[in-house]
Simulated assay, not measured.
Amino acid sequence: MSDIPIDDDDLLAAVRSAHSELDPPPERLRDAAIRAATWDLELDLLVSLAHDSQLTASGLRTVAVPRDLVFESDGIAIELVVESKDTDPAISVIRGEIDPVPDRVTLRSPGRPDRVVDVDDAGRFEAEVDASLIRIVAMIGDREVGSGLITLLD
């Protein structure tokens, strides 16, 4: 072992360099992480989580099936019910209702193409999703409104 002292910043830089050289993250993962981190900047309005049936009063997650989620802000509400598909637990079934009724609803997941889903006249939609992270984005008038990033599968 060397007697030369090394400070924390230099040590972290050396570890980061060795890790990047020996086991770099896949480019696909890097791109998905960058896209997920910048999603909020692409929206006109990010609606806030108002209710999650899996959260207890202490903030801990429970296993509530189905899972109810409500996002609200500026007179806009996105209500979701999420549960596993009976025949394939790796697939989540999302049933939602958005008020006011959007012109379009898009499902976004890191590293995957956007998916537009049909919306009825009452603002309801349903989709099966095999992703673990998703964001619901609604076009309401000329505003793109999105939920926070939702973890679907535990």
Rank of each mutant, 00 (worst) to 15 (best):
V93H: 04
V93L: 13
V93I: 09
V93R: 09
V93Y: 02
V93K: 03
V93M: 06
V93Q: 09
I94E: 04
R95M: 13
R95N: 07
G96R: 02
G96A: 05
E97W: 02
E97L: 04
E97C: 03
E97V: 02
E97D: 05
E97H: 04
I98A: 00
I98T: 07
I98K: 00
I98F: 02
D99E: 06
D99T: 07
D99F: 00
D99R: 02
D99S: 07
P100D: 03
P100W: 00
P100K: 01
P100Y: 02
V101M: 13
V101H: 01
V101A: 12
V101P: 15
V101C: 15
P102N: 00
P102Y: 01
P102F: 03
D103H: 08
D103W: 01
D103A: 11
R104F: 01
R104A: 02
R104N: 00
R104K: 04
V105A: 10
V105T: 12
V105W: 05
T106A: 14
T106G: 14
T106Y: 07
T106M: 14
L107E: 07
L107G: 01
R108Y: 09
R108E: 12
R108P: 04
S109L: 06
S109T: 13
S109W: 03
S109M: 06
S109H: 10
S109Q: 11
S109K: 09
S109E: 10
S109G: 15
S109V: 09
S109D: 09
P110A: 06
P110E: 13
P110S: 07
G111S: 13
G111M: 11
R112D: 07
R112G: 02
R112V: 09
P113G: 14
P113N: 15
P113S: 15
P113L: 15
P113T: 14
P113Q: 14
D114E: 14
D114Y: 13
R115F: 10
R115W: 04
V116I: 11
V116Y: 06
V116C: 05
V116D: 06
V117R: 13
V117F: 04
D118W: 05
D118S: 10
D118Y: 05
D118V: 07
D118R: 08
V119Y: 06
V119N: 03
V119R: 00
V119A: 01
D120K: 03
D120Y: 00
D120T: 00
D120A: 06
D121M: 08
D121K: 03
D121W: 02
D121T: 03
A122I: 01
A122N: 13
A122T: 08
A122F: 00
A122E: 15
A122G: 08
G123Q: 05
G123L: 02
G123I: 04
R124N: 12
R124I: 12
R124H: 11
R124A: 11
R124M: 13
F125M: 14
F125P: 15
E126W: 01
E126L: 05
E126I: 06
A127F: 10
A127I: 14
A127V: 15
A127E: 10
A127C: 12
E128C: 13
E128G: 02
E128K: 02
E128H: 12
E128S: 14
E128L: 09
V129N: 11
V129W: 07
V129A: 09
D130G: 09
D130K: 05
D130T: 05
D130H: 11
A131I: 08
A131Y: 07
A131Q: 14
A131L: 12
A131C: 15
S132P: 08
S132A: 14
L133Q: 12
L133T: 10
L133W: 09
L133C: 06
L133M: 12
